[in-house]
């Protein structure tokens, strides 16, 4: 029998650096509130596992771990998280009373039992894979995979195809209503004309000497503010500016600007205009 395998110092160090970090990241899965952060924790655990596989004389599995788990599975998780909503966090109300404590107790008990079994069992002295990996690790794996496990390998292939088809069928949405085209949209808008919906685009916000932001209403030819020119949300929130205040500010600036008449005289807007009067636009028409 070959002499027992000695774990090298470098591997020992690698283990003691990675293992606590892995356990911490795995615990993050339990305590982190957001699902995206949990996914990131799991990605860390999986990459650390890949490093451990390479250290444990399984380089092929290490690469497969990175490609399949962190590359495919976790990306799938992230895509589904984006579909479901990234901020979909857990509800904290307990539907089963005391479930949290029972769960923690069961988890701790499980960990104690498992580690107890491992600690109690006597293992043979480790052989190491040096002789088995003599033909390089992927070749050795392939000989077992396509030798002893051909049938299982083919069954797994069938399983993969079935899973892919199943996922397609599950997520496929059948068209329940007729497809909406430009034609139907246009017809619907014309039909809604009787309900006060306008066919044309809404008027743009007003442009003043100092303001042209979304919250400034435009003025109609009679000088009254047009409410539709301000976005509906701002109107509901009451965040639109009053036209009176805007025109007053303009008038105040024009009124104080007496030093140079380069801008032109304030024709219809005397400085002492009553602020509560309905705003008119003589300055603009002048």
């Amino acid at each position: 029998m070959t002499p027992g395998l000695e774990v090298s110092g470098g591997e020992t160090m690698l283990f003691w650096v990675l293992a606590p970090l892995m356990v911490l990241a795995a615990l993050g899965l339990l305590f982190v509130r957001r699902a995206v952060h949990a996914a990131m924790c799991l990605v860390f655990v999986m990459i650390s596992l890949a490093i451990m596989y390479v250290a444990q004389e399984a380089p092929f599995l290490g690469v497969v771990q990175v490609v399949v788990y962190t590359g495919a599975v976790m990306m799938l998780f992230l895509f589904v998280l984006m579909l479901v909503g990234v901020d979909a966090s857990d509800s904290l109300t307990e539907t089963i009373k005391g479930q949290r404590w029972i769960g923690v107790l069961l988890g701790l008990g499980f960990a104690v039992v498992l580690t107890g079994v491992v600690a109690q069992a006597t293992f043979q002295s480790p052989v190491g894979l040096e002789s088995a990996n003599a033909v390089t690790n992927p070749v050795a794996l392939a000989r077992v995979l396509f030798g002893d496990y051909v049938l299982a390998m083919e069954a797994v292939g069938v399983l993969l195809v079935t899973a892919a088809t199943g996922a397609l069928v599950l997520t496929h949405r059948r068209q329940l209503t007729t497809r909406r085209t430009q034609r139907t949209t246009a017809d619907a808008r014309v039909r809604a004309l009787t309900e006060g919906v306008s066919l044309t685009p809404l008027p743009a916000p007003g442009v003043y000497a100092q303001n042209n932001a979304m919250d400034t209403p435009a003025l109609d030819p009679a000088g009254r503010p047009v409410p539709e020119s301000v976005p509906r949300v701002l109107r509901i929130r009451g965040q639109e500016r009053s036209v009176t205040a805007l025109l007053d500010a303009e008038a105040a600036i024009v009124g104080t600007d007496t030093s140079g008449d380069a801008v032109g005289p304030p024709a219809g807007l005397p400085a002492g205009q009553d602020p509560d009067s309905t705003p008119t636009l003589p300055a603009r028409e002048a």
Binding site: V23, A26, L29, L30, G107, F110, A111, L114
Partner: peptide
């Protein structure tokens, strides 16, 4: 074992 228990929890 520890990782498995954390996953189960």
């Amino acid at each position: 074992c520890i990782l498995f228990a954390i996953g189960a929890t």
